[in-house]
Design a protein around this nucleic acid. Structure first.
Length: 804
RNA sequence: GCGGAGGUGGCGGAAUGGCAGACGCGCUAGUCUCAGGAGCUAGUGGGCAACCGUAGGGGUUCAAGUCCCCUCCUCCGCACCA
């Protein structure tokens, strides 16, 4: 084949072929075993795809093609998560509307993804912003509402002053807005919540079951933040109020010498005249409110105000102890109040030192005059607990509290209910009517979708209301229950709503009777492999787990786990090790690489330069290696010759198939199973090694070439499809992965390293499976020994070590 | 502070406790040629050598990049979680 490999022509030809034949359509209820491989929704931004997309999606793509060849009915869909701030902000910047922006961005993305040769089933394309889709997002919200899992409540919420909207804890991690990185403020507002906290235990169980890296499971567990301890009530002297605290250390109750409530704690308001320095307390509250969460956490010195005129009563011994308001206690965790045990807690210790409060040691073992002691030890100064160690003391105190009614055993979670709304335009409207008489009244499913209305001005403003509030025709309605005039809810759902169930819609994307046909849900079941970024592990993955668990509970899906296995890709970093991104200004345009090197070379290169899960330093150096390899593959037909297949040839092919089968994706895997797959870089190396092996003999047979093309196809689909068609007159997509003959893996002879006293001294060639006597004889012949051997360690086919 | 990942040639990176550096880039020399960012051949951790080499130091083992202990450095999460 003298003709040079023209990737431009050949890639365009096959991409067109795949598009016109709808080549990768998944078949419902096929007889083949099903395999559902999912990669995260695309957020179609204005700039088209970037290297991160290619790094993230190419491996999944290889798995999808490999599994098809392996005889699976593969579902590999793609869709668009198009609601949310990026699109809306981009539309504002471009002075157009989000729908147009979305249309354009989707068209660009789709064109670019096709140029990479990705084998998505485009017949199942969905978009969260389509009414036909968000109808079902709204319907699931109605289910949540009717099951008591959606409620509106006023309280302190995270608010991004730049995006002008309420944010969830998940969206303001580290105290900054996930979108614009502005520091988040606390505001009081009435918002919709989903009772995610009620699902803590089920979500934790799902963490145990999913097949995912242990460290990622830990971040999910930490985010849910289960801790066990006690809820204890302290009487507030001189009032009828009681102050409730959560503690993981009930054993130290005798050491509680003061209490601290968060500045926002309602007790300050409830104490009324009993509180002598109310003004001071309110001033402190106002000060605290000015600080962002970041500032609050960063301050070195503890601050606080003693609440004058009131005291708490320690239920352990009846002593009166002071109450302080201090901003080191957060309203959002536990009860927003703590019992402070300065001798055994570093924060309380610092506070007590500053305010001159008694530090009472109740666990022996440290030097509480110098610092807080948080280790184990024997209880002292603690009445009936004296002499016990920490764990038995916890049990004894819990029993005591439950008997006296002063406290109960309690499990606490760091994860909060999900503030489920935005005061922005571009999101799903709530299917809820607010009636003065009937309260919050849901629409019926038949009334869905409730369409997102057009508005004259979609910009958010300082009113704290969504732009939808300005559209009177939308807002003014009648109550579905009593028929009197009423108003619609005008907030919109957060951008995570649509992605909290989308994998179910791919199963039946065009159904308008249900979000998906139960029979199809049953056939496809859980996603077998879900890939995406680590940044979604404590956001989207948790929301997805929550919604899916809920849908399971109400019998809408049959499998409790949405995803059987999750793999997270590393980032693409620039030469300096910095994250690549549009904002960083160091982005490389993948389209330029496609123009210059083609999709097959690009796919090989991005897989070859690093491990899937590790961060990858981006470099163009070395892409020539992939181009050269493809050129050699293109020239392989010149090496065709029949017959004379040596044992080495057969073995080289078997090794290649074996390494591909184990290195791409494991057959199946339950939770906690050790995988050694997703090693695309070493599978590509195996392809090259196979080529190098052939090159030694200078020929390849037709059957060898056929099998080699099949093995390479998932990585480089265009060139392999072309060669396959030219040589075998068939469409490679309908062929089957070669059957691996394990017996061919066995070598006839092995080269054995010979060690003397553990040091390499030489090598000998022996028949495979040689006995120790044979190996020993060969070794002695090759390496004369300085002394007679005392001992020989022989590992068959691996090594011989002679101790003298 | 807590948690996690990582540290291997000039570079990207390979190595179920068993030949460190697979594979590729780059580089060197040669070769061919329709002069290209092409192909082919050979070489390429250090050292003249014995030997020495996987951040540094100890240890376990017949055998350690890999397991254990200590130290250093880099990156990434989380962070007053009671």
């Amino acid at each position: 084949m003298a003709e040079r490999y023209n990737f431009r022509e050949i890639e365009a030809k096959w991409q067109k072929h795949w598009e016109t034949t709808d080549a990768y359509r998944a078949v419902d209820f096929s007889d083949k075993p099903k395999y559902y491989v999912l990669t995260e929704f695309f957020g179609p931004s204005g700039k088209g795809i970037h290297l991160g997309h290619v790094k993230c999606y190419t491996p999944t793509e290889v798995v999808a093609r490999y599994k098809r060849l392996k005889g699976y009915n593969v579902l590999y869909p793609a869709g668009w998560d198009a609601f949310g701030l990026p699109t809306e902000n981009y539309a504002l910047k471009m002075n157009t509307d989000p729908e147009t922006v979305t249309d354009n961005n989707v068209a660009t993305f789709k064109r670019q993804l096709k140029r990479l040769g990705y084998s998505f089933d485009w017949s199942r394309e969905i978009r969260t912003t389509d009414a036909a889709y968000y109808k079902w997002t709204q319907a699931i919200f109605l289910e949540l509402f009717s099951h008591g899992l959606a409620y509106k409540s006023e309280g302190a919420v995270n608010f991004c002053p730049s995006c002008k909207t309420v944010l969830s804890n998940e969206d303001s991690q580290g105290g900054v807005c996930d979108r614009c990185h502005a520091e988040v403020e606390q505001r009081t507002r009435s918002v919709w919540y989903l009772r995610m906290k009620d699902y803590s235990e089920k979500m934790l169980a799902a963490v145990d079951e999913i097949d995912m890296k242990e460290n990622l499971k830990d971040s999910q567990r930490n985010w849910i933040g289960r801790s066990t301890g006690a809820e204890i009530e302290f009487a507030v002297k001189g009032t009828d109020k009681r102050l409730k605290v959560f503690t993981t250390r009930p054993d130290t109750l005798f050491g509680a010498t003061f209490m601290v409530i968060s500045p926002e704690h309602p007790l300050i308001d409830e104490l009324k005249s009993a509180l002598k320095n109310r003004e001071e307390a309110l001033a402190y509250r106002a000060e605290a409110a000015k600080k962002t969460a970041v500032e609050r956490a960063a301050q070195k010195e503890k601050t606080g105000v003693r609440l004058e005129g009131v005291a708490a009563v320690n239920p352990a011994d009846g002593r009166e102890i002071p109450i302080y308001a201090a901003d080191y206690v957060m309203m959002g965790y536990g009860t927003g109040a703590i019992m402070a045990v300065p001798a055994h807690d570093e924060r309380d210790y610092a506070f007590a030192k500053k305010f001159g409060i008694e530090i009472r040691e109740v666990i022996a073992g440290g030097d509480v005059a110098a610092e807080a002691y948080t280790g184990d030890g024997t209880l002292v100064n603690s009445g009936f607990l004296d002499g016990l160690s920490v764990e038995p003391a916890k049990e004894a105190m819990l029993a005591h509290l439950e008997r006296t009614g002063a406290g109960v055993k309690k499990v606490n979670y760091k994860m909060q209910d999900w503030p489920f709304n935005r005061q922005r335009y571009w999101g799903e409207p709530f299917p809820i009517v607010v009636c003065d008489d009937c309260g919050y009244v849901p629409l019926t499913e038949a009334e869905l979708p409730l369409l997102l209305p057009e508005v004259a001005d979609m910009r958010p403003d300082e009113s704290g209301n969504s732009p939808l509030a300005k559209n009177a025709a939308f807002v003014e309605t009648v109550c579905p229950r009593c028929g009197r005039p009423a108003r619609r809810e005008t907030d919109t759902m957060p951008n995570w709503a649509g992605s909290s169930w989308y994998w179910l819609r791919f199963i039946d994307p065009h159904n308008d009777e249900a979000f998906a046909d139960p029979k199809k849900l049953k056939y496809w079941g859980a996603v077998d492999l879900y890939t995406g970024g680590t940044e979604h592990v404590t956001r989207h993955m948790l929301y997805a787990s929550f919604w899916h668990n809920f849908l399971y509970d109400i019998g809408k899906v049959e499998n409790r786990l949405p995803f059987t296995r999750r793999m997270c890709n590393g980032l693409v970093l620039d030469e300096k090790g910095k994250k690549m991104g549009k904002s960083a200004g160091n982005a490389v345009d993948p389209i330029e690489i496609l123009d210059e090197y083609g999709a097959d070379a690009f796919r090989l290169h991005i897989l070859f330069i690093g491990d899937y899960e590790q961060n990858t330093l981006w470099t163009m150096e070395g892409i020539n290696g992939c181009t050269n390899f493809l050129n050699r593959v293109w020239a392989l037909p010149d090496m065709l010759r029949e017959g004379g297949v040596s044992r080495e040839h057969a073995r080289a092919l078997a090794v290649l198939l074996k390494r591909a089968e184990t290195g791409i994706v494991a057959e199946s895997g339950g939770a906690g199973r050790e995988h050694n797959d997703f090693k695309f870089n070493t599978v590509i190396a195996a392809m090259m090694e196979f080529y190098n092996e052939l090159k030694k003999d200078g020929f390849i047979t037709r059957e060898e070439l056929r099998q080699f093309l099949l093995a390479l196809n998932p990585f480089a689909p265009h060139i392999t499809a072309e060669l396959y068609q030219r040589l075998f007159f068939k469409d490679i997509d309908f062929e089957s992965w070669p059957v691996l003959d394990e017996s061919k893996l066995v070598e006839a002879v092995v080269e054995l390293p010979v060690q003397v006293n553990g040091k390499l001294k030489g090598r000998v060639t022996v028949p495979a499976g040689a006995s120790e006597a044979e190996a020993r004889a060969a070794a002695l012949e090759a390496c004369p020994l300085p002394a007679p051997p005392k001992k020989v360690i022989y590992v068959k086919d691996r090594i011989i070590n002679i101790i003298v």
